[in-house]
């Protein structure tokens, strides 16, 4: 009898809410894992999640679906995640955005109310200029700015973006007098670099590799601890002494607080297998993503450090919420 009720109920639920049918899986604590994103359908983050969901399902032994908690640049996602069941069925795809939102718009639930599980990738950032720019490396550009106060123009992506923070940090450290001009997004900045409005820009390699291949842009430096496999000849900012420390964009998973340690261990194991999967590896290398696996302990510490550096930046530059 109960079986009948349950079947009917699940049939109703399926038709009502269009949950993908759960395959009979025994391995993972739940049949279906949902990864929520605050990004819109079709956006870069969304496509990335769709790409990763197949290998993750394979190694986790559960269905993985992608769903949306859009609105408020992650504010809604954090609020929903904080009260989601802590059984390993709901995760939030983390990018630095939700931390910016937590710090600047002060929603009810912030990064403090959720827990970090694993990290998958870093999004490498590079410095770039037009192909015919006189600068060979980012060091040349910084030296020029220091030597010619008020002459240099650098371009960052949106107002509070990480890309802009990188430039402001360098400007402050070197005492350069340079205009750092923010844009709507990375694409707007790319135009400004191409038409000479600004001398150099900072952006994600994924957005720029087409132009670099075509010889319209040249990379001036990599903002990562190590050189990139796709750009082996381009030095890092650390090598050049342009910056002493790097802040990097990350992509991983967060969950509600209180997920049992055994469940976390299962996800950690699956994440490592996902990154080692040869087919998936080809895919993410093409997208210029750098694997950056971190288990829960390490990831928590990493995010904590990230939050600190963000908070300090906002405080130093007087960017605060009303």
């Amino acid at each position: 009898m109960r079986q009948v009720v349950r079947n009917t109920l699940s049939a109703v639920a399926l038709s009502l809410f269009a949950i993908a049918p759960a395959a009979a899986q025994e391995a993972y604590p739940v049949d279906t894992v949902t990864i929520y994103t605050h990004s819109k359908p079709g956006s870069g983050s969304d496509l990335f999640l769709r790409a990763i969901s197949a290998p993750l399902a394979k190694y986790l032994g559960a269905n993985v679906i992608v769903d949306y908690w859009a609105g408020g640049s992650g504010a809604k996602a954090m609020a929903n995640l904080a009260v989601a069941p802590a059984d390993g069925s709901a995760f939030y795809a983390t990018t630095p955005t939700h931390i910016t939102t937590s710090l600047l718009s002060k929603p009810d639930k912030t990064y403090k109310d959720i827990d970090y599980i694993v990290n998958f990738f870093y999004d490498p950032e590079i410095f770039y200029a037009k192909a015919d720019s006189p600068f060979k490396t980012i060091k040349d550009a910084v030296d020029f700015a220091v030597a010619n106060p008020g002459k240099a123009k650098w371009g960052g992506a949106s107002a509070g973006s990480l890309e802009r923070q990188i430039l402001e940090k360098i400007k402050k450290a070197k005492g350069a007098e340079v205009a750092i001009i923010p844009h709507e997004d990375g694409a707007g900045l790319l135009i400004s670099v191409l038409n000479g409005t600004v001398d150099i820009g900072v952006g994600e390699l994924a957005e720029l590799s087409g132009q670099i291949e075509a010889g319209e842009l040249k990379p001036l430096g990599v903002y990562m601890p190590e050189r990139l496999p796709n750009l082996p000849d381009v030095p890092t900012a650390l090598e050049l002494g342009v910056d002493s420390d790097v802040i990097i964009k990350f992509r991983g998973l967060a969950g509600p607080k209180g997920i049992p340690a055994e469940t976390v261990a299962l996800i950690e194991a699956a994440a490592q297998k996902v990154l080692a999967d040869p087919d998936f590896k080809k895919e993410y290398e093409k997208l210029n993503l750098i694997p950056g696996y971190m288990g829960q302990e390490e990831y928590r510490g990493y995010v904590g450090k990230f939050v600190e550096s963000q908070a300090k930046f906002y405080e130093d530059f007087g960017v605060t919420a009303e």
């Binding site: 408020g72 640049s73 504010a75 939102t101 718009s105 002060k106 949106s158 960017v319």
Partner: peptide, 19 residues
């Protein structure tokens, strides 16, 4: 949020209108 500095304007603390 302001296009140049990123400070929020007239949001009355509502995260939904931050962007």
């Amino acid at each position: 949020s302001d296009p140049i500095s990123g400070v929020t304007r007239f949001t009355f603390g509502i995260p939904e209108v931050y962007g």
